[in-house]
Amino acid sequence: MNAKRRVRYVAQLLDQIGLEGERVAMANISSAMGAQFAELVTDTTERLRELGPSPLKET
């Protein structure tokens, strides 16, 4: 619960900087939820690919 709020805070910090807050996310997945984990990683990878590399690396 606390970690989730802190991740939300970090996302806000990134938004303020001008980086996309969606670059950081948190999910609760148990070790028995293999399919959901795979789906989450796939979705995250797609989202990050859409966002592109960090503009800080390019400048």
């Binding site: 001008g18 980086l19 800080l56 400048t59």
Partner: peptide, 15 residues
Amino acid sequence: GILASQLRMRSKLEG
């Protein structure tokens, strides 16, 4: 520390 990092990154993004 947090604000310093934000300032460095934001200013770099703004060129």
